[in-house]
Design a protein around this nucleic acid. Structure first.
Length: 322
DNA sequence: AACGCGCCCAACCGCACATAC
DNA sequence: TGTATGTGCGGTTGGGCGCGT
């Protein structure tokens, strides 16, 4: 089934930004048809427009349609987009069906220009919604923005901390962490992404935290690629739920239903505010008494998040809740 | 005031799928 | 059943704009 030639390639067909006159002609024509377009290919001639039908359709669906909501995205919309994206991936048109008045193009643009950057700054890979591993944060790879790249001096320390699970003495683990945190203190350009990966250690400074809690925090560091809390019960398109997603896409019954995605991935359930906090931890730590150790002076990492708005602060904080 | 730079978003491109014949 | 046509969709582009120097 080959691709059909498009009228957009015809010589003389106008491209580029739409003028007010063109907008008016398109809207008037569709109004005359009672809101029914019929054939987009034949529309330009009927409406007196020197435009490709495809261009008219795009202009109408993304800009001129009367039910389009303009303006900034709300926190709720942002939150919903993130969760839907975690479940569906780049299915912008499907995501758009769950946000009243928002177009797929608008959501896609908003994702690429705002949300993606915020997630990266938080140390979360926007493509997979998994925490970025330290080596990706460090080596300046494709996923690591300049903001996420700590100074070179930190690289061996980050690697060492990432492998804490294999070390055999708790004291060495503490020492490594202390070196790392000291290094962070001496480098003002260490960024939010790094902060995100290290914020778990902040819990150790809390006098009320017990050893089990510390053990969990250390495991978080050793398994930096764990899933953020805000996605804990979101079926992931990138992980083990891929099979479910594929079943959804290939199941003719689900595909033809009015709300196939809701039925398959339970998107409606993505909205609730609270999520299960169960996190499996794989590493067994030796139980020791820490009374003899010098107290650590830990930076108050949370204070560095004070610039975040409440929604993002909530996501960041919940990501490290054991 | 002029210039350069980076960001944002409307619009375009081209592939895939659906449908008609 | 095969082909032509129409539409949907995700990725990409580039012009406009704001901001810093």
């Amino acid at each position: 089934m080959g691709r059909s030639p498009c009228c957009c390639h015809d010589a003389g067909v106008k491209k580029g930004p739409w003028t007010e006159e063109e907008d008016r002609a398109l809207v008037e024509h569709i109004k005359k048809q009672g809101g029914h377009v019929g054939s987009w290919r034949s529309l330009p001639r009927a409406a007196g427009l020197n435009r490709c039908g495809k261009s008219c359709r795009l202009r109408w669906t993304n800009y001129l349609r009367p039910d389009i909501k303009r303006g900034n995205f709300s926190d709720d919309e942002e939150r919903l987009i993130i969760r839907l994206h975690a479940a569906l991936g780049n299915k912008w048109s499907t995501i758009a069906t769950h946000l009243d008045g928002r177009t797929d193009n608008e959501i896609k643009n908003y994702w690429n220009t705002h949300i993606k950057k915020k997630l990266l700054r938080m140390g979360i890979d926007p493509a997979t919604h998994q925490r970025l591993p330290p080596d990706l944060l460090v080596d300046g790879g494709a996923l690591a923005s300049p903001l996420l790249s700590p100074p070179g001096a930190l690289q061996p320390l980050l690697s060492a901390v990432a492998s804490l699970g294999s070390l055999d003495t708790t004291l060495r683990q503490f020492q490594l962490l202390q070196h790392l945190l000291n290094a962070i203190n001496s480098n003002s350009d260490v960024t939010a992404g790094l902060m995100a990966n290290l914020a778990a250690t902040n819990a150790m400074a809390n006098p009320t935290s017990n050893f089990a809690n510390f053990q969990e925090q250390m495991n978080m560091l050793a398994h930096a690629n764990y899933q953020p809390d805000y996605l804990r019960d979101v079926p992931s398109f990138a992980g083990q739920d891929m099979a479910q997603e594929q079943n959804c896409n290939t199941d003719p019954v689900l595909r033809s239903s009015a709300e196939p995605i809701d039925q398959c991935c339970n998107v409606a359930a993505l909205v609730p505010e609270t999520y299960p906090q169960e996190v499996p931890f794989a590493v067994d730590w030796p139980v020791q008494d820490f009374a003899d150790l010098e107290p650590l002076e830990l930076p108050n990492l949370c204070s560095m998040e004070s610039d975040l708005d409440p929604f993002w602060k909530d996501i960041l904080e919940s990501s490290f809740r054991p």
